[in-house]
Protein backbone atom coordinates (compact mmCIF):
# COMPACT_ATOMS: atom_id res chain seq x y z
CA UNK A 1 0.00 0.00 0.00
CA UNK A 2 2.75 2.39 0.95
CA UNK A 3 4.54 1.94 -2.35
CA UNK A 4 1.24 2.60 -4.17
CA UNK A 5 0.86 5.94 -2.47
CA UNK A 6 4.40 6.85 -3.38
CA UNK A 7 3.80 5.93 -7.01
CA UNK A 8 0.73 8.17 -7.08
CA UNK A 9 2.75 11.04 -5.66
CA UNK A 10 5.35 10.60 -8.33
CA UNK A 11 2.67 10.42 -11.05
CA UNK A 12 1.11 13.68 -9.94
CA UNK A 13 4.46 15.42 -10.13
CA UNK A 14 5.02 14.41 -13.77
CA UNK A 15 4.75 17.36 -16.13
CA UNK A 16 2.91 16.79 -19.42
CA UNK A 17 4.84 17.85 -22.54
CA UNK A 18 2.42 18.21 -25.50
CA UNK A 19 3.56 16.88 -28.85
CA UNK A 20 5.14 19.71 -30.87
CA UNK A 21 4.29 20.16 -34.53
CA UNK A 22 7.21 22.17 -35.98
CA UNK A 23 6.41 21.19 -39.57
CA UNK A 24 2.96 22.69 -39.33
CA UNK A 25 4.62 26.01 -38.60
CA UNK A 26 7.07 25.57 -41.44
CA UNK A 27 4.47 24.57 -44.05
CA UNK A 28 2.05 27.24 -42.82
CA UNK A 29 4.72 29.90 -43.14
CA UNK A 30 5.64 28.74 -46.65
CA UNK A 31 2.02 28.94 -47.78
CA UNK A 32 1.57 32.44 -46.32
CA UNK A 33 4.79 33.61 -47.97
CA UNK A 34 3.74 32.20 -51.35
CA UNK A 35 0.36 33.91 -51.08
CA UNK A 36 2.06 37.18 -50.14
CA UNK A 37 4.33 36.84 -53.16
CA UNK A 38 1.34 36.23 -55.40
CA UNK A 39 -0.42 39.28 -53.96
CA UNK A 40 2.66 41.37 -54.49
CA UNK A 41 3.02 40.12 -58.08
CA UNK A 42 -0.62 40.99 -58.73
CA UNK A 43 -0.16 44.49 -57.38
CA UNK A 44 2.94 44.95 -59.53
CA UNK A 45 1.25 43.45 -62.62
CA UNK A 46 0.25 45.71 -65.45
CA UNK A 47 -3.43 45.47 -64.77
CA UNK A 48 -5.77 48.39 -64.51
CA UNK A 49 -7.48 47.02 -61.37
CA UNK A 50 -9.60 50.11 -61.07
CA UNK A 51 -11.23 49.28 -64.44
CA UNK A 52 -12.38 45.79 -63.38
CA UNK A 53 -15.49 46.89 -61.41
CA UNK A 54 -16.61 48.89 -64.39
CA UNK A 55 -16.42 45.84 -66.65
CA UNK A 56 -18.07 43.73 -63.92
CA UNK A 57 -21.17 45.93 -64.18
CA UNK A 58 -20.85 46.71 -67.91
CA UNK A 59 -24.22 46.37 -69.75
CA UNK A 60 -22.68 43.90 -72.21
CA UNK A 61 -21.40 41.85 -69.29
CA UNK A 62 -24.90 41.77 -67.81
CA UNK A 63 -26.25 40.56 -71.14
CA UNK A 64 -23.65 37.80 -71.14
CA UNK A 65 -24.45 36.93 -67.54
CA UNK A 66 -28.15 36.65 -68.23
CA UNK A 67 -27.52 34.47 -71.31
CA UNK A 68 -25.15 32.26 -69.34
CA UNK A 69 -27.73 31.74 -66.59
CA UNK A 70 -30.55 31.03 -69.04
CA UNK A 71 -28.41 28.63 -71.08
CA UNK A 72 -27.12 26.77 -68.01
CA UNK A 73 -30.57 26.42 -66.44
CA UNK A 74 -32.24 25.38 -69.69
CA UNK A 75 -29.53 22.86 -70.58
CA UNK A 76 -29.44 21.38 -67.08
CA UNK A 77 -33.23 21.31 -66.77
CA UNK A 78 -33.66 19.62 -70.12
CA UNK A 79 -30.85 17.22 -69.26
CA UNK A 80 -32.55 16.19 -66.01
CA UNK A 81 -35.85 15.45 -67.75
CA UNK A 82 -34.14 13.56 -70.59
CA UNK A 83 -31.87 11.83 -68.11
CA UNK A 84 -34.82 10.47 -66.11
CA UNK A 85 -36.43 9.20 -69.32
CA UNK A 86 -33.22 7.54 -70.55
CA UNK A 87 -32.58 6.06 -67.09
CA UNK A 88 -36.07 4.54 -67.04
CA UNK A 89 -35.45 3.14 -70.54
CA UNK A 90 -32.14 1.75 -69.36
CA UNK A 91 -33.95 -0.08 -66.54
CA UNK A 92 -36.93 -1.05 -68.69
CA UNK A 93 -38.04 -4.61 -69.40
CA UNK A 94 -38.15 -3.74 -73.10
CA UNK A 95 -34.81 -4.82 -74.64
CA UNK A 96 -35.11 -2.33 -77.52
CA UNK A 97 -35.52 0.55 -75.06
CA UNK A 98 -32.60 -0.76 -73.02
CA UNK A 99 -30.27 -0.92 -76.00
CA UNK A 100 -31.38 2.47 -77.23
CA UNK A 101 -30.52 3.94 -73.83
CA UNK A 102 -27.10 2.29 -73.84
CA UNK A 103 -26.40 3.65 -77.33
CA UNK A 104 -27.66 7.12 -76.41
CA UNK A 105 -25.35 7.32 -73.40
CA UNK A 106 -22.45 5.92 -75.39
CA UNK A 107 -22.84 8.55 -78.12
CA UNK A 108 -23.60 11.74 -76.20
CA UNK A 109 -21.20 11.02 -73.35
CA UNK A 110 -18.50 9.92 -75.77
CA UNK A 111 -18.16 13.12 -77.81
CA UNK A 112 -16.54 16.36 -76.59
CA UNK A 113 -19.12 19.05 -75.82
CA UNK A 114 -17.30 21.57 -77.98
CA UNK A 115 -17.48 19.21 -80.94
CA UNK A 116 -21.18 18.59 -80.34
CA UNK A 117 -21.89 22.32 -80.21
CA UNK A 118 -20.04 22.81 -83.51
CA UNK A 119 -21.90 19.93 -85.16
CA UNK A 120 -25.31 21.31 -84.17
CA UNK A 121 -24.33 24.82 -85.20
CA UNK A 122 -23.27 23.63 -88.64
CA UNK A 123 -26.21 21.33 -89.19
CA UNK A 124 -27.47 23.51 -92.03
CA UNK A 125 -24.48 22.42 -94.10
CA UNK A 126 -25.96 18.92 -94.41
CA UNK A 127 -29.69 19.46 -93.78
CA UNK A 128 -30.96 22.65 -95.36
CA UNK A 129 -34.44 22.13 -94.02
CA UNK A 130 -35.81 20.48 -90.92
CA UNK A 131 -39.06 18.86 -91.93
CA UNK A 132 -41.57 16.13 -91.45
CA UNK A 133 -42.70 15.51 -95.04
CA UNK A 134 -46.26 16.68 -95.50
CA UNK A 135 -46.48 18.35 -92.11
CA UNK A 136 -44.01 21.18 -91.92
CA UNK A 137 -40.64 22.35 -93.16
CA UNK A 138 -38.37 25.10 -91.87
CA UNK A 139 -34.92 26.22 -92.95
CA UNK A 140 -32.33 24.79 -90.56
CA UNK A 141 -30.52 28.13 -90.35
CA UNK A 142 -33.61 29.72 -88.89
CA UNK A 143 -34.03 27.13 -86.15
CA UNK A 144 -30.43 26.43 -85.29
CA UNK A 145 -29.55 29.71 -83.64
CA UNK A 146 -26.40 29.95 -81.56
CA UNK A 147 -28.55 29.49 -78.44
CA UNK A 148 -30.25 26.35 -79.74
CA UNK A 149 -26.96 24.86 -80.91
CA UNK A 150 -25.34 25.52 -77.54
CA UNK A 151 -28.42 24.21 -75.72
CA UNK A 152 -28.38 20.96 -77.70
CA UNK A 153 -24.63 20.48 -77.41
CA UNK A 154 -24.52 21.09 -73.66
CA UNK A 155 -27.89 19.57 -72.80
CA UNK A 156 -27.62 16.30 -74.70
CA UNK A 157 -24.13 15.65 -73.35
CA UNK A 158 -25.33 16.38 -69.84
CA UNK A 159 -28.46 14.23 -70.26
CA UNK A 160 -26.23 11.19 -70.85
CA UNK A 161 -24.48 11.85 -67.53
CA UNK A 162 -27.82 12.53 -65.81
CA UNK A 163 -29.17 9.21 -67.11
CA UNK A 164 -26.35 7.38 -65.36
CA UNK A 165 -26.77 9.43 -62.18
CA UNK A 166 -30.52 8.81 -62.08
CA UNK A 167 -30.05 5.12 -62.82
CA UNK A 168 -27.58 4.81 -59.94
CA UNK A 169 -30.06 6.64 -57.70
CA UNK A 170 -33.00 4.45 -58.65
CA UNK A 171 -30.94 1.28 -58.26
CA UNK A 172 -29.79 2.38 -54.81
CA UNK A 173 -33.32 2.12 -53.42
CA UNK A 174 -33.94 -1.23 -51.77
CA UNK A 175 -36.18 -3.65 -53.68
CA UNK A 176 -38.19 -4.09 -50.47
CA UNK A 177 -39.42 -0.50 -50.82
CA UNK A 178 -41.02 -1.26 -54.18
CA UNK A 179 -42.54 -4.45 -52.78
CA UNK A 180 -43.98 -2.63 -49.78
CA UNK A 181 -45.47 -0.01 -52.11
CA UNK A 182 -46.95 -2.76 -54.28
CA UNK A 183 -48.37 -4.53 -51.24
CA UNK A 184 -50.50 -1.52 -50.34
CA UNK A 185 -51.78 -1.39 -53.89
CA UNK A 186 -49.62 1.38 -55.36
CA UNK A 187 -49.38 1.58 -59.13
CA UNK A 188 -45.89 1.69 -60.70
CA UNK A 189 -46.15 5.43 -61.36
CA UNK A 190 -47.21 6.25 -57.78
CA UNK A 191 -44.48 3.97 -56.45
CA UNK A 192 -41.88 5.84 -58.48
CA UNK A 193 -43.19 9.26 -57.48
CA UNK A 194 -43.92 8.66 -53.79
CA UNK A 195 -41.46 5.96 -52.74
CA UNK A 196 -38.52 5.41 -55.08
CA UNK A 197 -37.66 8.88 -56.42
CA UNK A 198 -37.70 10.69 -53.04
CA UNK A 199 -35.25 8.12 -51.70
CA UNK A 200 -33.17 8.12 -54.88
CA UNK A 201 -32.75 11.89 -54.53
CA UNK A 202 -30.22 11.43 -51.77
CA UNK A 203 -27.96 9.65 -54.25
CA UNK A 204 -28.91 11.83 -57.23
CA UNK A 205 -28.48 15.35 -55.80
CA UNK A 206 -24.75 15.53 -54.94
CA UNK A 207 -23.43 14.52 -58.40
CA UNK A 208 -26.16 16.60 -60.08
CA UNK A 209 -24.99 19.64 -58.12
CA UNK A 210 -21.43 19.00 -59.25
CA UNK A 211 -22.58 18.62 -62.82
CA UNK A 212 -24.57 21.84 -62.67
CA UNK A 213 -21.48 23.70 -61.50
CA UNK A 214 -19.66 22.19 -64.46
CA UNK A 215 -22.54 23.22 -66.69
CA UNK A 216 -22.29 26.87 -65.59
CA UNK A 217 -18.66 26.92 -66.64
CA UNK A 218 -19.31 24.76 -69.71
CA UNK A 219 -21.55 27.44 -71.20
CA UNK A 220 -18.33 29.33 -71.97
CA UNK A 221 -17.82 26.91 -74.87
CA UNK A 222 -20.75 28.56 -76.60
CA UNK A 223 -18.44 31.54 -77.14
CA UNK A 224 -16.84 29.72 -80.10
CA UNK A 225 -20.11 29.99 -82.05
CA UNK A 226 -20.43 33.65 -80.99
CA UNK A 227 -23.25 33.13 -78.51
CA UNK A 228 -23.09 36.10 -76.15
CA UNK A 229 -22.48 34.36 -72.86
CA UNK A 230 -19.99 35.73 -70.30
CA UNK A 231 -16.73 34.90 -72.07
CA UNK A 232 -17.99 36.14 -75.42
CA UNK A 233 -19.30 39.28 -73.71
CA UNK A 234 -15.87 39.85 -72.16
CA UNK A 235 -14.26 39.44 -75.58
CA UNK A 236 -16.75 41.87 -77.06
CA UNK A 237 -15.85 44.50 -74.49
CA UNK A 238 -12.09 44.01 -74.73
CA UNK A 239 -12.06 44.02 -78.54
CA UNK A 240 -12.93 47.69 -78.25
CA UNK A 241 -10.64 48.78 -75.41
CA UNK A 242 -7.98 46.00 -75.48
CA UNK A 243 -8.17 45.58 -71.70
CA UNK A 244 -8.27 41.81 -72.17
CA UNK A 245 -7.23 40.65 -68.70
CA UNK A 246 -9.39 43.21 -66.94
CA UNK A 247 -12.56 42.05 -68.72
CA UNK A 248 -11.62 38.38 -68.25
CA UNK A 249 -11.17 38.97 -64.52
CA UNK A 250 -14.57 40.64 -64.38
CA UNK A 251 -16.11 37.59 -66.12
CA UNK A 252 -14.19 35.30 -63.75
CA UNK A 253 -15.73 37.08 -60.77
CA UNK A 254 -19.21 36.44 -62.15
CA UNK A 255 -18.46 32.71 -62.56
CA UNK A 256 -17.33 32.54 -58.94
CA UNK A 257 -20.49 34.32 -57.80
CA UNK A 258 -22.72 31.90 -59.75
CA UNK A 259 -20.83 28.81 -58.60
CA UNK A 260 -20.96 29.97 -54.98
CA UNK A 261 -24.73 30.43 -55.17
CA UNK A 262 -25.10 27.00 -56.81
CA UNK A 263 -23.00 25.40 -54.05
CA UNK A 264 -25.15 26.95 -51.34
CA UNK A 265 -28.30 25.78 -53.12
CA UNK A 266 -26.90 22.26 -53.36
CA UNK A 267 -26.16 22.29 -49.64
CA UNK A 268 -29.76 23.10 -48.77
CA UNK A 269 -31.16 20.57 -51.27
CA UNK A 270 -28.98 17.85 -49.76
CA UNK A 271 -30.22 18.76 -46.33
CA UNK A 272 -33.85 18.68 -47.44
CA UNK A 273 -33.48 15.14 -48.79
CA UNK A 274 -30.96 14.01 -46.21
CA UNK A 275 -31.27 10.98 -43.93
CA UNK A 276 -33.85 11.11 -41.16
Amino acid sequence: MASDTRMNDVREELVVVPLRHPWRWVSGTVIVLLLAALGWAMSEAQIQWEDVPGFFTHPVMFEGLLNTIVLALAAQGGAIVLGVVVALMRLSANPVARWFAVGYIWLFRGLPVLLQILIWFNLALVFQNISIPGLFSVPTNLVMTTFVAALLGLGLNESAYMAEIVRAGLSSVDEGQTEAAKSIGMTPMTTLRRVVLPQAMRVIIPPTGNNFINMIKGTSMASVIAFTELVHAANNISSRNLEIMETLFAAAAWYLVMVSIASIGQHYLERAYGPR
Binding site: G176, Q177, E179, A180, S183, G185, T187, P188, Q199, P275
Partner: peptide, 20 residues
Protein backbone atom coordinates in the same frame (compact mmCIF):
# COMPACT_ATOMS: atom_id res chain seq x y z
CA UNK B 1 -52.58 -6.03 -60.46
CA UNK B 2 -51.95 -3.16 -58.06
CA UNK B 3 -55.70 -2.71 -57.80
CA UNK B 4 -56.09 -6.36 -56.72
CA UNK B 5 -53.47 -5.99 -54.01
CA UNK B 6 -55.48 -3.32 -52.20
CA UNK B 7 -57.48 -6.03 -50.46
CA UNK B 8 -54.47 -8.04 -49.30
CA UNK B 9 -52.13 -6.74 -46.63
CA UNK B 10 -48.55 -7.91 -46.38
CA UNK B 11 -45.95 -7.71 -43.65
CA UNK B 12 -42.33 -8.32 -44.55
CA UNK B 13 -39.42 -9.83 -42.70
CA UNK B 14 -37.40 -6.62 -43.13
CA UNK B 15 -40.39 -4.31 -42.30
CA UNK B 16 -39.83 -2.20 -45.45
CA UNK B 17 -41.27 0.96 -43.94
CA UNK B 18 -40.77 4.08 -46.05
CA UNK B 19 -37.76 5.67 -44.31
CA UNK B 20 -38.48 9.18 -45.58
Amino acid sequence: AAHQRRDVGMVFQRFNLFPH
